[in-house]
Design a protein around this nucleic acid. Structure first.
Lengths: 143, 143
DNA sequence: CATCTAAATGTTTAAATATTCATTGGATTG
DNA sequence: CAATCCAATGAATATTTAAACATTTAGATG
């Protein structure tokens, strides 16, 4: 079980609502066979840009991926990593290119440009903060 | 010193950034001659829809008032109250109508309709939650 | 393969926030 | 005007979150 898989599950749970504390989230994750301490979740929250509101945790607003890209991502996107102002995506073999094209179409402000190989996409962002935002956005689309 | 004045000041401080805890906010308010305990601030935060992020407290995204309305409000808006799904504005005497017209122009989703008297505007919202959101938005414009 | 490094996570505990219950100071009404 | 109600706030405290530090693990490197 990888970190980005866990974070993907966290986003799913948050979206479905009704999560008010990190302990609550930890319990919800346990139902899905994911063990994580409150401390780990606190860190995940920060990385994913989640905030506590009166009606539970929420993701800070940012524009939503369109259907074409979201569909491709759900099907082929396998991992999302970040280093400095770069984000690296792994896709199913042979699909990097189509995913990258759809991603380019999004014209997100966090993306300066992309380069796709066979199963890897390199994305250049303006800065580290943008890369982090982008990572959170993309993790949400992991299967 | 009224509650909505305090909340207006809170929004100002939050906007200018660099507020990371409620105690910090309390100290900043003291500089402006406003005394409030952490408990009161916790409640204010909730009412105003403020959330804690990695870069300090922030207001949850919602669309921003346009210049015309914002200008009028800054000049004439004096108080904002909420009861159920209704929000009541007090303006300088004789100015309720012009403020209400500008407000209607905003076409906000939180506003079903408005009625203006001489110095009072009644706003009907779809529900209590919308009214609360609207209140927070408007308080930000108080002188 | 031993060693080093860095990311990820855990443990402990401090700090920050929210809740509960109580008080106060207007309005409202009989 | 007393009695009552209610919004606003505070004090004490419980709960939640984050910081500091330690440990583990997987990959790099000699």
């Amino acid at each position: 079980m990888t970190k980005s898989f866990r974070q993907g599950q966290i986003l799913k749970l948050i979206r479905s609502g009704g999560i008010f504390t990190q302990d609550e989230l930890a319990r919800a994750l346990k139902e899905v066979e994911i063990d994580a301490t409150q401390v780990t979740l606190s860190r995940d929250m920060r990385e994913l840009g989640l905030v506590k509101t009166a009606d539970g945790y929420r993701q800070l607003d940012r524009d939503t991926p369109n259907m074409v890209f979201a569909g491709l991502a759900t099907e082929f996107l396998q991992d999302v990593r970040q280093a400095q102002n770069q984000v690296i995506l792994r896709t199913a073999p042979g699909h990097a290119n189509s995913v990258a094209v759809a991603l380019d179409d999004e014209e997100w402000p966090e993306i300066v440009g992309t380069i796709a190989g066979d199963d890897t996409i390199l994305i250049i962002c303006p800065d580290t903060a943008a890369a982090q935002t982008l990572r959170a956005k993309l993790i949400a689309l992991l299967g």
